[in-house]
Simulated scan of single mutants.
Amino acid sequence: MPIDQAAEFDAQPRFRYGARPVPLLGLFRACHPAPAMVVAVLATALTALSGRGATGCALAGLAVLSGQLSVGWCNDRVDLRRDIAAGRADKPLVTGDIRPAAVSVAAGVALAACVPFSLGYGLLAGTVHLVGVAAAWSYNLGVKATVASWLPYAIGFGLLPAAVTLGLPGHPWPAAWAVLAGALLGVGAHAANVLPDIEADTSAGVRGLPQRLGRRRTRVLAVCALFSASAVLVFGPAGPVGAAGWAALAFAASLSGYAVAAPGSGAGGRTPFLAAMAIAVVDVALLLLRGATLA
């Protein structure tokens, strides 16, 4: 990466939470631990529900976790200049709790570990997972600032069911509804994730699809994509919807209406974001409920 890391780090003002940096804690915080763990646990649970044994579940979980860690560290490293300019005191690279070189090395090590873990789960399944990881890296490395910012999310989430089912005996492709629901969930998660920081991103020169749409239309995009994922997960699989499916769909519909109509459309408003995240939780629950029928 064409950046003089030491000079960049030493020349910029830094913010401290305490008197001394805690490198390991800073490295942990820089990996975006919450989403990394959520996606890894989801992949492991889907693998278990699909019928794989303990070894397969462990490999799937480690593959996804290492991939997500690499993406998180890559994101904070690439965004360092922008985060410094924005005074992001929640970022350990900005506060000086960890050096840029350490984050770069961590991202590379995690990415390298992701390859054998992924291929160990299955050659075809592992290759599909690595394509999803590559899509996430492409987002960090520039696609996030283009009108196609939604595409890496759609690819990564849409391929997750395939990465699970292609590791099963016979290497079956996932059902079309599972891929579509995953892609919609990814697009909705992208729009919802950007929503709280949309003005700051625009000021920093990030011109992804949500920033081009603006806060109001991005809110609608997030809700429509996430609720559409709910509907696909309820009606896509064969068989009766069942009481749980109808209840989940009704709950998602109520959250969708609230997210669109709720106040908080100004800068910093988090109510629509939280409502959208609640719909995403419903979608994840539905995906797990359908986990045994992915293929």
Rank of each mutant, 00 (worst) to 15 (best):
residue 200 A to D: 13
residue 259 A to G: 04
residue 243 A to E: 10
residue 175 A to E: 14
residue 250 A to R: 07
residue 33 P to T: 01
residue 220 V to Q: 15
residue 140 N to D: 15
residue 61 G to M: 07
residue 263 P to I: 09
residue 162 A to M: 12
residue 83 D to I: 01
residue 172 P to F: 02
residue 1 M to F: 13
residue 134 A to W: 10
residue 125 A to K: 10
residue 272 P to N: 11
residue 177 W to N: 07
residue 84 I to V: 14
residue 9 F to R: 05
residue 202 T to E: 13
residue 85 A to N: 11
residue 285 A to D: 00
residue 154 A to G: 11
residue 288 L to N: 01
residue 295 A to E: 03
residue 167 G to H: 00
residue 87 G to L: 01
residue 28 F to V: 04
residue 202 T to N: 10
residue 74 C to H: 06
residue 234 V to L: 06
residue 75 N to F: 05
residue 267 A to F: 00
residue 110 A to H: 09
residue 61 G to D: 08
residue 89 A to C: 03
residue 18 G to C: 02
residue 266 G to C: 08
residue 5 Q to D: 12
residue 96 G to M: 09
residue 72 G to N: 05
residue 60 A to M: 15
residue 229 A to N: 08
residue 79 D to Q: 04
residue 79 D to C: 06
residue 119 L to W: 14
residue 222 A to P: 11
residue 294 L to H: 01
residue 256 S to G: 14
residue 67 G to L: 12
residue 53 G to Q: 09
residue 156 G to H: 08
residue 99 R to H: 14
residue 266 G to D: 12
residue 213 L to G: 13
residue 187 V to D: 00
residue 89 A to Y: 03
residue 233 L to H: 08
residue 106 A to I: 05
residue 256 S to C: 03
residue 290 R to G: 02
residue 134 A to E: 06
residue 164 V to G: 02
residue 84 I to L: 15
residue 202 T to C: 04
residue 228 S to L: 14
residue 215 R to D: 12
residue 195 L to R: 06
residue 129 H to K: 05
residue 249 L to D: 00
residue 275 A to Y: 08
residue 197 D to I: 04
residue 248 A to C: 03
residue 276 A to W: 01
residue 15 F to G: 02
residue 85 A to S: 11
residue 88 R to L: 12
residue 86 A to V: 02
residue 128 V to D: 00
residue 260 V to N: 07
residue 75 N to S: 09
residue 66 S to T: 14
residue 64 V to S: 11
residue 186 G to Q: 03
residue 215 R to G: 14
residue 213 L to N: 12
residue 262 A to F: 09
residue 36 A to T: 07
residue 68 Q to T: 07
residue 294 L to M: 08
residue 20 R to K: 08
residue 26 G to T: 02
residue 242 G to L: 04
residue 21 P to S: 05
residue 225 A to P: 09
residue 107 A to C: 10
residue 142 G to L: 09
residue 159 L to R: 10
residue 148 A to Q: 09
residue 54 A to M: 10
residue 131 V to M: 10
residue 216 R to I: 12
residue 176 A to S: 10
residue 249 L to P: 07
residue 145 A to C: 12
residue 53 G to L: 10
residue 58 A to L: 15
residue 289 L to F: 11
residue 12 Q to L: 11
residue 115 V to K: 04
residue 200 A to C: 05
residue 181 A to L: 01
residue 112 A to F: 08
residue 266 G to F: 04
residue 104 S to F: 09
residue 207 R to H: 14
residue 151 L to H: 07
residue 101 A to K: 10
residue 251 F to C: 12
residue 262 A to Q: 00
residue 87 G to A: 05
residue 111 L to F: 14
residue 35 P to S: 10
residue 83 D to P: 00
residue 52 R to H: 14
residue 193 N to V: 03
residue 186 G to Y: 04
residue 121 Y to V: 00
residue 156 G to C: 13
residue 17 Y to D: 13
residue 153 Y to I: 12
residue 238 A to E: 14
residue 250 A to S: 02
residue 264 G to F: 02
residue 128 V to K: 04
residue 218 T to A: 12
residue 29 R to H: 05
residue 132 G to M: 05
residue 98 I to V: 15
residue 45 A to F: 00
residue 176 A to Q: 00
residue 198 I to L: 15
residue 201 D to A: 03
residue 254 S to I: 06
residue 241 V to R: 06
residue 149 S to L: 12
residue 103 V to I: 12
residue 95 T to K: 10
residue 156 G to S: 15
